[in-house]
């Protein structure tokens, strides 16, 4: 996902490099070989496969775009598209705003701020399977953390993960908890880059804290804000583990994302042509977001 600094090329090197010959290829050949076999070939092979009716054991019939027309009429698939978009709406703005708030609050040199930064980033180093295990015992109605707290106040437990309206929001809360470290750190890095002179000028104008925040700080980190939004869209688009482990996409498909659909169609139903077609749609959507990231990152010098 790191198209960001791709523009930093040094044109000088094209001219004055070591003399061109085929032995130079030896340095890049090992990587290129793996890249071609494991990325380029599967990419095109998957596109070709998506035009076939195929199962795992080799039977293949060319069907043209039939898989795609089937997908667009498949209520479950359309539901996964909706769930994925809904999940992005639930998580991405929250991650950006909480991340920015934490960065603003913790952008200090005190020991307490350093410890708190460490605490808020710590969940980011855990694997999805540990995170979901921790949060399932928060959410389960039978002895979960929330249920236990509710019980102390004499309230009945809530079955978050088996309620159609609450399953995806519960997964979103888990995800925000897991992922909050990255946006916070990106904003902190951006805040460090704001020129001191701007604050000095604002102080000379007797601008208060909120005025300084609105007219100096936030405009200076505009580009980072856009970048955080796009990075998180790309990341959250790939929602899989949390849904697979916490709800299995249920109840009644209410929390099934695109990637879980691809996984189940491909590896449970072995309808691999159909799964490959769904994967092409995922690829197209992510490609658009990645291109947006590239163009935002390219404007580094401007804002």
């Amino acid at each position: 996902m790191s198209v960001a600094a791709a523009h930093v090329t040094d044109s000088r090197e094209t001219r004055s490099g070591a003399r061109g010959d085929w032995s130079s290829l030896l340095y890049v050949a090992p990587f290129l070989l793996i890249y071609i076999v494991l990325v380029v070939y599967p990419l095109f092979s998957g596109m070709w496969l998506s035009l076939h009716k195929a199962d795992f054991f080799g039977e293949r019939v060319f069907v043209g775009l039939e898989n795609f027309t089937r997908l667009l009429a498949d209520k479950v698939f359309l539901g996964t598209l909706w769930n994925t978009f809904y999940f992005i709406v639930l998580t991405v703005p929250a991650l950006a705003i909480i991340g920015l708030g934490l960065a603003l609050a913790l952008n200090r040199t005190t020991r307490a701020a350093a410890v708190l930064r460490g605490v808020f980033f710590s969940s980011s180093v855990l694997s999805v399977t540990i995170v979901t295990l921790l949060w399932r015992v928060v959410f389960i109605p039978d002895g979960g953390f929330i249920a236990t707290v509710l019980e102390m106040f004499g309230k009945p437990p809530v079955a978050f993960l088996s309620d159609e309206d609450l399953a995806l929001p519960a997964i979103a809360i888990t995800t925000i908890w897991w992922c909050i470290g990255l946006p916070m750190m990106l904003f902190l890095a951006a805040l460090q880059q704001v020129p001191k002179e701007l604050y000095e000028a604002a102080a000379l104008d007797n601008a208060g804290r909120w005025k300084t925040l609105w007219s100096v700080t936030l405009p200076s980190i505009r580009r980072t804000f856009a970048l955080v939004i796009i990075i998180e869209i790309v990341l959250q688009f790939q929602l899989f583990g949390q849904a697979q482990l916490m709800t299995l996409g249920g109840p009644n498909n209410a929390s099934r994302p695109i990637v879980l659909f691809i996984y189940e169609v491909g590896f449970n139903r072995w309808d691999i042509g159909y799964a490959a077609a769904a994967a092409q749609i995922l690829f197209g959507l992510i490609l658009m977001a990645a291109l947006a990231q590239y163009f935002v990152a390219r404007r580094k010098g401007e804002a």
Binding site: V39, P42, L43, S45, G46, V259, A276, A279, Q280, L287
Partner: peptide, 13 residues
Amino acid sequence: GLAVPEQAVIIPR
């Protein structure tokens, strides 16, 4: 390749 998610190539891989 940075824009190709693993999930998109999983079936052929």
